[in-house]
Design a binder for these strands. Structure first.
Lengths: 351, 351
DNA sequence: CTGAAAGCGCTTACAG
DNA sequence: CTGAAAGCGCTTACAG
């Protein structure tokens, strides 16, 4: 038992069967389409292609990489793939990579600097052609080092230190939320702001706070708390908020998962989201719409961000200058911050 | 500007600087620890190691793979990484792989057979040493083919066709849910059963239905509907359930994300989860506990499943027989199916 | 204990 | 249009 693993077909095998030299076969099979010079005569090309097809030839990537010093591999670092935001961005990266004939290594760094370093070395040790970081810290020392070493890379999700980055216009997203809450008449608001080292949370908070300041309602410091980017973090941040003073009328949580924790904490304090207090999240993850009280949030083009990040990396690999891109967010209003929608919802449930 | 990418250090460079032959350096640096035979004299070993360290030598994996026909790479296929269940299993795989000196390619197949085929070929084209499938379909024709080709692989998450698989004891998990609902006095229940090609949903439903049958309460066919494994799927399945007859007193949704869709649909029909109808999910994903009405669910050891799956693959790669493993699930009762807990919750919120 | 050779599978100027 | 050679960086018996 146990099927023997067939030795893969090589160029040499094809050459032998056809009485050609391996270099001719190589030229035929892998001549760049743009290449003006013909690889061989039409009949030869035909024969080679046919046999390669028949035998199911697949180029040995290790041999090719060794010879060309190009691996067509890229490394992707994310804080954690179990965060649906990063997983979705990665799906975009992978999709676009496949279209460019590139394969991706993706790895979790849990936002721990030592792990970021170690995984970067590991990935570089694999001789990737370039990297995409989804876990940049605002203190960009590490990335500066990587850049100094000449490693081509781009950032997605979070920006840092002026390196080419494809991110959502988080500042604008924060302003949109502020605008919405101001329209709803909120005057005393709070923010669960995420990790202080992540541009996402910082920029969202910044836009939000700026807009309130412009409205003559600067947000006091104790109304802004940092937190981890998950349900636990949202819960913990909210508990601190509730302990630190009177109840605000609205809470902006800089990501949906945090918002879920916030909702849990508010519930534990006997507060009804949408009625007693407004809550707004960020990212419009799939469950925001499905929550018992649907969550107002800001939609960010996550998959598209991944696709564009990969495209920028391809440009960098081609020797061009990588460009930063700012993707447009969109406010999605739902019952968690809109009394009219909340009433309609309750009417249905109540009746 | 533009740091030049330094050419990586090779064995040859080290050998030259030390006046040694490259083969000696190779032996020193990469002799297996188990190897009884010494690679070189102590002083030589010392000098080589020191210089390698100093220069930051990293073995070129392409050269090594080409020479040894072993890539230390494994391919992982999942339906989608944006499903937190699969992302968490993958985290376990990656963790364990790193401990074994292996790197992983992971790729999304969206449960589409043509994509599964294409991605498998792509990954095999990268010359991985083995594969882990998290997206097996019960109709195991494709996997049988892969096995016949002699590709070493194991399954995680879903089992199929008797191939080595590390999965949760889904059947038992389903029985646990049934047991719990029977204790709560439910007699008329329904199931949102997931995709019919996935053993997870099928086994969970099977265990659940068997237990009810044993209790003398066989579940009529129209009370079991199939659905996609996400919030949208749960919502759609639940709508069909609600359209097909009188209201059941409890709904078992075979995964948490589906359950969220179910909760959304029930809400839209004016039903209060935990009061008017019980809902139970599966997997205990992080948000189950944070939902406004916390969700009863079955905890499955997702990360551990990934770790064990990788370990089984390592065994297979070592020429041993891969073994299937069944991991133990645990029922987590919360307010969505427990009137006592629900009352306590409401008392807090109401007050 | 250390060196020399062969070879993994490919690509790329260079001849002819 | 096609062949021959060199070489990417490594490992692995085999000599000595």
């Amino acid at each position: 038992m146990g099927a023997k693993k067939a030795r893969p077909v090589t160029l040499q095998m094809i050459a032998d069967q056809l009485g050609l030299h391996v270099s001719t076969v190589s030229r035929v099979l892998h001549a760049k389409p743009g290449e003006g010079l013909r690889a061989a005569s039409s009949p030869t090309v035909e024969r080679v292609r046919r046999l390669a097809d028949e035998l199911g030839y697949q180029r040995n990537p290790h041999a090719m990489s060794l010879r060309t010093q190009r691996s067509n591999l890229i490394g992707v670092l994310v804080p954690r793939l179990s965060d649906v935001v990063l997983a979705t961005i990665y799906e975009g990266i992978e999709e676009a990579a496949a279209e460019h004939g590139l394969s991706t290594f993706v790895t979790n760094t849990r936002d721990v600097p030592e792990v970021q370093r170690a995984r970067t070395e590991m990935v570089l040790g694999r001789r990737v052609d370039g990297m995409i970081f989804g876990d940049a810290h605002s203190d960009s020392g590490f990335l500066d080092e990587v850049a100094a070493r000449g490693v081509p890379f781009v950032l997605v999700n979070r920006r840092a230190g002026g390196h080419p980055a494809v991110v959502c216009d988080d500042y604008l997203g924060g302003r949109m939320v502020a605008e919405h809450l101001l329209e709803q008449g909120h005057r005393d608001v709070a923010v669960v702001a995420g990790e202080p080292y992540a541009s996402t949370g910082v920029d969202r908070t910044g836009g939000f706070a700026d807009r309130f300041r412009e409205a003559g309602l600067p947000i006091p410091e104790h109304r802004i708390v940092h937190s981890r980017f998950d349900a636990q973090g949202g819960r913990a941040g909210t508990e601190r908020l509730l302990a630190s003073g009177p109840l605000p009328s609205a809470v902006f949580v800089v990501n949906d998962f945090g918002a879920i924790g916030t909702i849990g904490a508010l519930r534990d304090h006997g507060l009804r989201v949408g009625a007693d207090i407004a809550v707004v999240g960020f990212n419009d993850t799939p469950l925001a719409a499905e929550l018992p009280v649907p969550l107002t949030t800001v939609r960010s083009p996550m998959r598209e961000m991944g696709r564009r990040g990969l495209r920028q990396l391809v440009r960098v690999l081609a020797g061009e200058q990588g460009e930063s891109e700012l993707l447009r967010p969109e406010l999605i209003v739902r019952a968690s911050s809109d009394p009219a929608r909340y009433e309609r919802l309750m009417a249905k449930v109540g009746g």
